[in-house]
Design a protein around this nucleic acid. Sequence first.
DNA 1: TCAATGATTAGC
DNA 2: CTAATCATTGAT
Length: 206
Amino acid sequence: MATPCLKPSFYRRPAQEVAPNLIGCILVKQNSPNDFLWGVVVETEAYSQEEEGCHGFHRRSSSNETLFGEPGKLYVYRSYGIHHCVNIVTDQTDWASGVLLRAVAIPDLGERVASGPGLLSKMFSLDLNYDGISVTGGNDVWIASRPSELEFPKLVNTTRIGITLGKELLLRWYLKNSRSISRRAKGDRTPALLKSWSPSELTYTF
DNA sequence: TCAATGATTAGC
DNA sequence: CTAATCATTGAT
């Protein structure tokens, strides 16, 4: 199961290229010397300053500075006053872009415990203290590459959720047949809850 | 000082 | 679908 930590070069590409490639990768958090929390990334969204849905679209400021910074670092911000959202900065410095982590499947903890950006940040204890922290090694949070059974994940590409500007752009991806995404696309018949889960029709159980 | 606004969530 | 929630932001 152990796979290598994704290197900075992985993130030095446009967000819309990184986002689908993060699906199936493993988010790892070391909470104490022998306490590791891990889960499969099953849902992401891409943002970049060329489109108006991005926090860096209008101007560079103290609140979005991290998004303009070094790729491979976390961009964490407060949402609706009460939640946190976790992004990974992508592309190149001085160009605002990143990938929002929207849902992770955590086999050890059961059903839909990190299905949504606010729940994900809460489950992994990622708050504003983690803004600017690198996920490419040397810290208590990182992302490992895809395990072999998720080498070629089946993806669904849809519009992003919860935004008012740029809502028509197809910049959200999720693992097809995942039970742990925050919301499935219209027309996707994949069961989202265990009670309607039928093993025979699923490729992955994440 | 105050009203408006969310890259949300829970609940019907 | 709507209500609840509250830090941040920009306008009085």
